[in-house]
C-alpha cells in the first residue's frame, strides 16, 4: 500500500512540475506565436495584391453575419486610398496536411491578382512547388493573363492552360495543385456571397 502511494505520488509530482513549467513557457511563447501568424498573414495580404499600401479587414467594409461563413478577407488600398482588390485567407487539405494561403482578387472579383502560400507540408521537391515558380506565377498573371473568375470556378489542367479559368498543374504534384485551386475557389465564392456582386465592393 505504501509503495503504491509512493508510486502515485511520484508520478503526480512529476506531472505537476511538468505542467506548471510548461504553462509558464506557454505564457511567454503563445503571444509571440500569435504575433508571428498575424505578421505572416498581413505580409501575405500586401504580397497578393501588388502595389497595396494599406488594408482594412472586411468587417469594416462589408459587415456581415460574422463567423457564419468564417470569411477572413481584407480590402487592399493603394497610397491614395484607391481600392486595388481583395486579399482572402483560405485553408484546406493538401496532399499530406493543411495548406493555408492568401489569394488576391480584383475589386470586381473577376480575376486573381496573386497568391501566397502561408503554410504547407507538401512533399519536398514536388508539392512544395506551389510556393514559388511557374505555378503561383499563373495567379499573378505573369507569362499569360491571370485566371479569370467570371467564367465560373477555376479548374486544374495537365499541360498548357487554354481557357481563361484554367490553371496548369505542377508535373508530379497534381493533388497539391488541385488543392490550392479548390481553396482559392472556396475563398472567392465566400467573398462573392458576402459582398454581393460588387455593391459594397467599391
Amino acid at each position: 500500500m505504501k509503495t503504491t502511494l509512493h508510486l502515485i505520488a511520484t508520478l503526480v509530482a512529476v506531472g505537476l512540475v511538468a505542467g506548471a513549467s510548461l504553462s509558464l513557457v506557454n505564457g511567454w511563447a503563445q503571444p509571440l506565436i500569435d504575433a508571428n501568424e498575424t505578421k505572416v498573414k498581413m505580409a501575405g495580404v500586401m504580397e497578393v495584391v501588388p502595389g497595396g499600401a494599406a488594408s482594412k479587414p472586411i468587417s469594416e467594409v462589408a459587415p456581415g453575419p460574422a463567423s457564419a461563413d468564417n470569411l477572413e478577407a481584407y480590402q487592399v488600398l493603394d497610397g491614395q486610398g484607391q481600392v486595388l482588390g481583395w486579399a482572402v485567407f483560405g485553408e484546406g487539405t493538401g496532399f499530406s496536411d493543411k495548406i493555408r494561403l492568401m489569394v488576391g482578387v480584383s475589386p470586381d472579383l473577376n480575376r486573381t491578382l496573386g497568391i501566397k502560400i502561408l503554410k504547407d507540408s507538401e512533399t519536398p521537391g514536388l508539392g512544395t512547388k506551389i510556393r514559388e515558380g511557374a505555378y503561383p506565377d499563373q495567379f499573378f498573371g505573369r507569362g499569360r493573363p491571370a485566371p479569370g473568375l467570371e467564367a465560373g470556378p477555376l479548374t486544374v489542367v495537365k499541360g498548357a492552360a487554354e481557357a481563361p479559368n484554367e490553371v496548369q498543374a505542377i508535373t508530379g504534384a497534381t493533388i497539391s495543385s488541385k488543392a490550392v485551386v479548390s481553396i482559392v475557389n472556396e475563398s472567392v465564392s465566400k467573398l462573392r456571397s458576402r459582398i454581393g456582386q460588387g455593391e459594397a465592393g467599391r
Binding site: 510548461l22 513557457v25 506557454n26 511567454w28 511563447a29 503563445q30 509571440l32 506565436i33 508571428n36
Partner: peptide, 14 residues
C-alpha cells in the same frame, strides 16, 4: 515530453 514541448513552443515563437 516536457522539454520537447519547450523546444516546440520556442521554435514556433522564435
Amino acid at each position: 515530453a516536457t522539454f520537447v514541448t519547450v523546444v516546440d513552443l520556442t521554435m514556433k515563437a522564435r
